[in-house]
């Protein structure tokens, strides 16, 4: 196998981790709240700037800033759901979509007002200097990024499957009315789910801060990819979303190598339409599909 292909594959897997985590958040929000979150890209950008601001403001490294950024993102997501989305719970579906769109405009442009449209970089030299693994080269920052993604996802698994809150979240996703009858405070759980989705997204964004230059509309480019991935994995199917994220990362990187960057976008969007049409429950087959 060509060494460049192998390198492209590795890059794809590492970037795919970010896609996977962000799409996991999207899928969780869809699974529990049945909302396609159009503020997802903007929330990702919030995560980037949260890490940036904390890191610069407190003079600590980007990875040390991550936990605080996570807490902030949870609060933000919790509030968005509790204050805004919750109060139009029973409106027609597209209202919630539009609401998240409005939120996206607000978040993105508040960032624009505060941080200006200029590119910001927060690269730490020690993490940027490429290291060699056999014939391959990779920046340590990207390895850390992937390691954190794996750790967070594992933590997520524990939270969802081993704790009471996690069980409540899964119950609410499966059957809201049933969950309520079992004494679960569904409203709070829904807010928690949105908060957790925001955390996933925020971490995915925050991990990119040490890797690339950030600007307020950067998240937009990730948002559509998250939609593609979450649909591919089956909306609401978390592990499907995670696997598809890695998969899309690899496909994008390889097709970028073979076809050139922008045509790979066409390929991905084309596949997206095909999946939406033919198999909207995703290739793993267990996602839940909303009828409106």
């Amino acid at each position: 196998m060509n060494i460049y292909v192998l390198q492209a594959f590795l890059d794809g897997v590492l970037m795919g981790g970010i896609y996977a985590l962000a799409a996991l958040g999207l899928s969780l929000i869809f699974g529990v709240l049945k909302i396609t979150n159009f503020a997802h890209g903007a929330m990702m950008t919030m995560g980037m700037y949260a890490v940036y601001a904390i890191s610069v403001g407190m003079g600590i490294g980007p990875y040390a800033a991550l936990p605080l950024a996570m807490a902030m993102m949870f609060g933000l997501g919790f509030l968005i759901q509790r204050v805004l989305i919750n109060s139009i719970d029973h409106a027609p579906a597209y209202n919630q979509l539009l609401l998240t769109l409005g939120v996206a405009y607000i978040l993105e442009n508040v960032l624009l007002m505060v941080f200006t449209p200029n590119y910001r970089t927060l690269t730490v030299d020690a993490f940027q200097k490429a290291i060699h693994i056999g014939p391959l080269t990779v920046a340590p920052a990207r390895l850390i990024m992937f390691a954190v993604v794996l750790a967070v996802t594992a933590g997520f698994y524990m939270l969802l499957y081993k704790t009471r809150v996690g069980r409540s979240i899964r119950a609410s996703a499966q059957d809201e009315e049933g969950a309520r009858l079992m004494g679960i405070h569904v409203k709070r759980i829904r807010a928690a789910a949105f908060g957790l989705g925001a955390v996933c997204t925020g971490i995915a964004g925050g991990l990119l801060t040490p890797v690339m230059s950030i600007y307020p509309t950067l998240g937009e480019s990730f948002q559509l990819k998250c939609f593609v991935i979450a649909v591919l994995g089956g909306m609401g199917n978390l592990w499907g979303a995670f696997l598809s994220g890695i998969f899309i990362g690899v496909i994008e990187s390889l097709s970028g190598y073979f076809l050139g960057g922008t045509w790979s976008e066409m390929l991905i969007y084309g596949a997206f339409i095909l999946i939406l049409l033919v198999r909207p429950t995703g290739i793993f087959g267990r996602g839940n599909r909303r009828e409106s």
Binding site: A91, N95, G102, Y105, N109, V110, M113, P117
Partner: peptide
């Protein structure tokens, strides 16, 4: 102030969806 007009845009969307559907 870059972005303020778009913030207003966003707020309008949110307010109308919530209070004046």
């Amino acid at each position: 102030v870059h972005g303020l007009n778009m913030v207003i845009y966003g707020v309008l969307i949110v307010v109308f969806i919530m209070f004046c559907r």
